[in-house]
Design a protein around this nucleic acid. Sequence first.
DNA 1: GCAATAAATGAACGGTGTTCACAGAACGGT
DNA 2: ACCGTTCTGTGAACACCGTTCATTTATTGC
Lengths: 210, 210
Amino acid sequence: MGSAERKERQRAELREQILQVARDMVMKEGFGALSMRKLADAVEYAPATLYLHFENRDAIARELCVRGFQELLAVLEPAAACEEPVERLSRLADAYVTFGLKQPETYRLVFMEDPKLSADLFQDKQEGAGPKSFAVLVRAFEALKAAGLALEGATPVRLAEVFWAGLHGIVSLKLTCSGFQGAPAEALAQTLVASTVHGPKPARATRRTR
Amino acid sequence: MGSAERKERQRAELREQILQVARDMVMKEGFGALSMRKLADAVEYAPATLYLHFENRDAIARELCVRGFQELLAVLEPAAACEEPVERLSRLADAYVTFGLKQPETYRLVFMEDPKLSADLFQDKQEGAGPKSFAVLVRAFEALKAAGLALEGATPVRLAEVFWAGLHGIVSLKLTCSGFQGAPAEALAQTLVASTVHGPKPARATRRTR
DNA sequence: GCAATAAATGAACGGTGTTCACAGAACGGT
DNA sequence: ACCGTTCTGTGAACACCGTTCATTTATTGC
């Protein structure tokens, strides 16, 4: 009787193993080097077997996208717990950049490959991991605004978008135009924070004398 | 004997034609869809012939990278001619973003594909197109600093890096995470300008949202 | 043990970049 | 005008790739 459940479990296990091996391949050699044949070889099945568990290569990539993004979200959440608004923004920036540099191929897969792969992440306005982590940033800017430290004339949503773009720009330029930037990404991120924080109370690295 | 020169000219012409067709293909269907076989077909030569003019597919891509970047530089230069520092930054941002959205596949090729492809652009610290257009941004921030409008505690070079990253982030998120951002890229770019410009005089010119 | 169902596969199709031995044309020197 | 060299061009092949499908193999319920 319980054999149906066992089969289902085994099926899920194999699916999981495929994703695991695929993840390793992507992290080690990049998404471009993820080949169905090599993947099948690694899990010791015929290539055709993979198609019993995934529609195609892109379906595997999409799943890896979702998981990669969840890892990013998991890294962002502790930083978002910080109370002090400027410090919170600073920690968020640092967490984001650190993740991007530590997991370059994952980051590439999620944010720099085909839009189709990451499209799922930004579908549901409420539940999706994309809007969810974006909301983390928006809240940070709401706190900043409440403290009178945000740029006037721009909504927290707008500021969050620009800030995210800034972080993404820093990480992705580091990943693709390696010879371009001089300063380390973390330093650039902190400059971004300093440049984003406005208002009477100067942010950490900023001192106003006249 | 002018025949040597004629042959050389014909050779250059074919090379040019290959690049032209390749460029069209990339702009229409993206770099991933650029196939040596289809390219050979389009110029009515055998695939092997392409290898008499280019080392491999990447060599073609590199050449397209250089040209694409020069187009960007050509778009940036008029904006850089503006005298008023804030307005100059605003126009630079607008030119950059507009270029990225109008030529998405070119932009992807230059800034979001393999680092190897765009590596050439940032080799020479002096002559290369990369550093050259970066210098345009640095000068803009020097002017901003001279007017007392730049973030204190950060060098113009550093600010230029962060600003570039911000622009790149806006463009590239628009290109890959289409469902992500709500506001149009030009508006985000102007918010970035507003958020970048510091100092006693609030930058009225950047208040407008287009 | 047998029929039905699920899992796995080998072989193929059409595509990719790249190489290389070979053919043909154009050339320079005699 | 001939010949040997040098350059241009190619067809065929190699080793991959993602994907499909008829077929085989294993597992299940009866």
